[in-house]
């Protein structure tokens, strides 16, 4: 009975030590958002931002099927604007691959989409190309 105090102190120390890694990670990273560079001169995406966040991968796959397999290249956005269904021209026409797509994918632990093995990043190819 005289040991009760020591037992509880010991337990408290154990619990603190055991959960330390979680507290540590929580304190360090949970509040940090990916530092996304949004297009400076544009207000709207091709769909509401929340839809884009959730479903841009699906949208890109639909675009890809539409263009390549159905020959349909015209996309009418929710605000009535018409876009070409193109990864390089449309998405990267507004967004920066490195400072937008890649940053969020790195942050979310999405293994970089392999699309860039074929599709060009206009910013990267400008510096790459030789006359």
């Amino acid at each position: 009975m005289r040991d009760r105090v020591w037992i509880f102190i010991g337990l408290a120390v154990f619990v603190a030590a055991f959960t330390a890694p979680f507290w540590h990670v929580h304190a360090k990273t949970s509040a940090r958002q990916p530092d996304l560079v949004l297009p400076a001169n544009q207000k709207e995406c091709v769909a509401p931002a929340s839809t884009m966040r959730d479903a841009h991968m699906q949208m890109l796959l639909n675009w890809r099927e539409d263009v390549v397999r159905r020959g349909d290249r015209r996309y009418v956005a929710f605000d009535g604007k018409v876009y070409e269904k193109s990864l390089t021209h449309t998405c990267l026409g507004c967004h920066s691959k490195a400072a937008f797509c890649d940053r969020c994918h790195e942050y979310s632990g999405v293994s970089g989409p392999y699309c860039w093995n074929c599709h060009s990043d206009p910013q990267a190819t400008v510096t790459r190309s030789r006359p």
């Binding site: 020959g71 390089t88 021209h89 093995n117 074929c118 599709h119 060009s120 990043d121 206009p122 190819t125 790459r128 190309s129 030789r130 006359p131």
Partner: peptide, 22 residues
Amino acid sequence: ASINPDFPTRTKGIVEKCNFCE
């Protein structure tokens, strides 16, 4: 020599051919 961003390249392990400039 100079990548044209208007058309995607291909990768190793892919077949390709003329598409009549579809």
